[in-house]
Amino acid sequence: MILKTVTGAIVAGAAAGLFAGLLQLAFVQPVLLHAELYESGQLVHFGAETPAAMAVWPGIDPVRDGLSLLFSMLIYTGYGLLLTAAVMLARGEEGWIGWREGLVWGVCGFIAAHLAPAFSLPPEVPGAAYVDVGPRQAWWAATIAATAVALWLLAFTRRPWAPALALVLIATPHVIGAPQPDSFEGPVPPELAALFAARALGTGLAAWSILGAAVALVGRSHSAEGR
């Protein structure tokens, strides 16, 4: 049962990660590469020339894009393992979830892992001004943990204080605030930065939905065998 649970979570995560990676290559990567032209100075915002807003499709870079697919599968495998652990904790001896419930789990995972940290630390377009990576990673991890606990309290704790504590946990990281740079000095046009953040969040929601459904479907098969 243990091996099947872990391998099932890895399969579900890798499949969702492949989907996420393909979506990102189609919708996020062109914006990222366009922004890198500004980051490297090949294009200059408010420079002598006005660069065209439409970027030429840069084509496929087999090594770079292959690594992106691989790391996307790795990261979603990690998410799939954590989501599987959370579902097992929540269900206990009750039966496994169906794919519709899996979708809800996936959306909640997206809220905790992508949307909550992005509320104060939006997905960064290359070239954006930033402070040291350490404090931002600490804030990012703490925000995800606090939001995940809050969602758990809202879903599974039938105590009168649970919703209030959940609200406090969700709000606190943003009231404290994420580490921000002293000044803004990004060379990338704001239109590109906004599109990048929106595309990153949109593909995240799609991928997490698939991940939730996949974790449900794969887990159901080994749950049935474990009878």
Binding site: G21, Q24, L32, L67, I75, G78, P117, V133, W140, L201
Partner: peptide
């Protein structure tokens, strides 16, 4: 995959970290 800053890992995972909202 998302947080370790070793140069080779960072370079290989660069685009995915940006696209998934990790501090890169």
């Amino acid at each position: 995959a998302g947080n370790v800053q070793a140069a080779s890992l960072h370079n290989a995972a660069h685009d995915v970290r940006h696209a998934n909202g990790f501090a890169c």
